[in-house]
Every structure is written in structure tokens, then in C-alpha cells.
């Protein structure tokens, strides 16, 4: 039954007017954002279920697809490395474990970014006809990515078992337990960028198309499939360029820290990781705030 008469009396009044958010002041907006996220938890979960459920029902090969693409990527690099075309650096773990682990973490960023960026544009009809939390839609887009990641973790475990039989001596450390937590900054960065790109993509559709090309390029620039390049000081110009890019690339720290925690139990460059994490948190906060200020424009343009 509909709410009783008493509860109607006290029902909350919502006001819509131009530049409403600006009149209310920035601090009250943070309260609004948090309240909205909390109130829409169930919606977010339902949207994840919709996305994940549909994906795995649609393709019999659902899980196979998730595993196949990273395997092909890693397989290509294994081939390039063993034929001496590329140098990937030296590492303690077998290269395939190193690479699969890196790709799994990278996918969390790359897939999440693409899915999040296209979430609003994909929602089309729903957005223009029903008023619901658009933040939930972007957040829910991360759901399928996280499920894919879980599948890849199984693949990683399989690699460990395989190489364990072949003599790879691995002893789990406390760092392994911290590895899942160390993914949080990467997720925040992904979500933050996804908020902004989703907004842009709902207005200009070219964004999502460009993005899938861009993330592939970014993966090659980031030490995901190779070790951080070590360049001696006297090597000049071009040779040190990649090293310099890596140094200022927050993705490097965010991707390699979880991997290092799994493989060796400790992060090589803790300072870099902390700075990158702070940067991610900043991006996330600015993005969700900006999204909140502008999301009412979305339905008009989708």
C-alpha cells in the first residue's frame, strides 16, 4: 500500500531550478553525494547483476573470452621475448606469471575505463525517461570488470600451480594478503576517469571509440608486460624517454605495486605508490564532484 497520510505530510520537498547546486554551496553537496551513493546501493547491485548476468548468459564462451584476450596478449609477448625482438627486463618470477598478473591488473583499469565511459551512452532510453542515480550506472559498469578480474585471478593461480610443478619456488608472504587492498587506488582512478569520460561520451560519442585504441597504446607505454626500464645516466635523449615517462606515470605504480606484493611481498617504490594513490584519490573526488554538478545535463544530450 502507498505511504500513509501522515508520512505524506512530512514527505521531502525537492526543488529543481537552474544552477541549484551552485546556490546551495559546495559543502552541502558532499553530503548529497554520499547520501545518494548510500541510498542507491541496492540499485547499483541490481545494475551489476543485470550487466554481469546478461554478459555471461549471452555468450556460452563468456568466461573463455575473458581469459582468451589476456592469454593472446601475453602469448604474443612470450613469443617476442623468446625470439629476442623485445627485451622485457629481468625478473625473479617466470615471465608468463609476471605478464598474466600484470595484464589482469591492467584489465581492471582498461576494461573498467571503457565500460564506465560508455555506460551513460548505452543507457540511452532509460536516462531520458526515468530519473535514477546516474552515478550508480557508472559505478555498476565496474562490476563486470571486477568479475572478469576474478576470473583472471584464477588463471594466475593456475599459472602458479603450473610453474610450481616446473620448479618455480614461491613462498606466500604477508604482502599477498595486502595485494587486494593495494588495488583500491587503481579502482578509484579508473572510476574517477570513467565519470568524466562517461559525461563527455554522452555528449560527443567519439570518446568511447577513441578510448579503446588509447588504452592499448597506454598499456604498451606502461610497464605492464615488461620491467621498468633501467637506463644509465650517460644514455641520453630518446633512450631515457620511456624511463622518464614511467617515472611520472601513476599507472605504473598502481599496476606494479599489487604485482610486487604478490610476487615478492613488498613494494619496490613505496613513495611513488603513495603519491600515485594520492593522485588517484584526488582525481576521483574531483570527478565525482564534477559529475554531480553536471549530471543533470546528461539526459538533455543523450
Amino acid at each position: 500500500m502507498p505511504p500513509s497520510d501522515e508520512s505524506r505530510q512530512s514527505a521531502e520537498v525537492v526543488v529543481y531550478r537552474p544552477d541549484n547546486s551552485l546556490r546551495r554551496g559546495y559543502f552541502s553537496l558532499w553530503g548529497d553525494i554520499v547520501r545518494e551513493l548510500v541510498r542507491n546501493r541496492w540499485l547499483t547491485v541490481q545494475l551489476v547483476k543485470r550487466d554481469v548476468g546478461a554478459f555471461y548468459k549471452q555468450s556460452l564462451l563468456g568466461i573463455v573470452w575473458v581469459v582468451l584476450i589476456p592469454l593472446i596478449t601475453v602469448g604474443t609477448f612470450v613469443l617476442l621475448r623468446s625470439s629476442g625482438v623485445v627485451a622485457v627486463g629481468t625478473m625473479s618470477a617466470p615471465y608468463p606469471i609476471f605478464a598474466v598478473l600484470g595484464v589482469a591488473v591492467w584489465q581492471l583499469f582498461a576494461q573498467g575505463l571503457v565500460a564506465g565511459a560508455s555506460s551513460l551512452a548505452m543507457g540511452g532510453d532509460m536516462l531520458t525517461r526515468i530519473n535514477f542515480s546516474k552515478k550508480s550506472l557508472v559505478i555498476a559498469a565496474m562490476g563486470r570488470t571486477i568479475v572478469s578480474f576474478a576470473v583472471l585471478v584464477v588463471l594466475v593461480a593456475a599459472c602458479f600451480v603450473f610453474y610450481g610443478f616446473r620448479g618455480y619456488d614461491y613462498t606466500p608472504t604477508l604482502g599477498l594478503a595486502l595485494a587486494p587492498l593495494s588495488l583500491i587506488p587503481l579502482l578509484l582512478l579508473t572510476l574517477g576517469l570513467a565519470f568524466y569520460l562517461a559525461l563527455l561520451n554522452s555528449i560527443v560519442r567519439d570518446i568511447a571509440t577513441m578510448l579503446s585504441v588509447l588504452v592499448t597504446f597506454l598499456m604498451l607505454l606502461t610497464p605492464v608486460l615488461y620491467e621498468r626500464p633501467v637506463v644509465s645516466n650517460d644514455a641520453g635523449g630518446i633512450a631515457s624517454a620511456l624511463s622518464a615517462i614511467t617515472e611520472y606515470n601513476p599507472l605504473y605504480y598502481l599496476v606494479s605495486a599489487p604485482r610486487e606484493l604478490v610476487l615478492s611481498g613488498q613494494v619496490a617504490d613505496v613513495g611513488g605508490y603513495l603519491i600515485a594513490s594520492g593522485f588517484s584519490l584526488g582525481v576521483f573526488l574531483v570527478a565525482i564532484f564534477g559529475f554531480h554538478l553536471t549530471e543533470t545535463r546528461i539526459a538533455e544530450r543523450v
Binding site: 514527505a11 548476468g53 530519473n131 539526459a299
Partner: peptide, 30 residues
């Protein structure tokens, strides 16, 4: 609350439901 006004003000008391796009958000495979 899907579009916001460009001038003026709208006040709405209570929860708003819509019999507008029935079945919006349905996923055909579910």
C-alpha cells in the same frame, strides 16, 4: 527531475513515480 528548468523553479513533494517508459531497463536475456 530528468531535465532541470532553465528558468523558474519546480517544487515537488514526495516520491515521484512514472508510468512513462514501461519496461525501460529490461534486459532481454534476463
Amino acid at each position: 527531475g530528468i531535465f532541470w528548468p532553465d528558468r523558474g523553479e519546480i517544487q515537488v513533494r514526495g516520491r515521484v513515480g512514472a508510468l512513462i517508459a514501461v519496461g525501460a531497463g529490461f534486459h532481454p536475456l534476463l
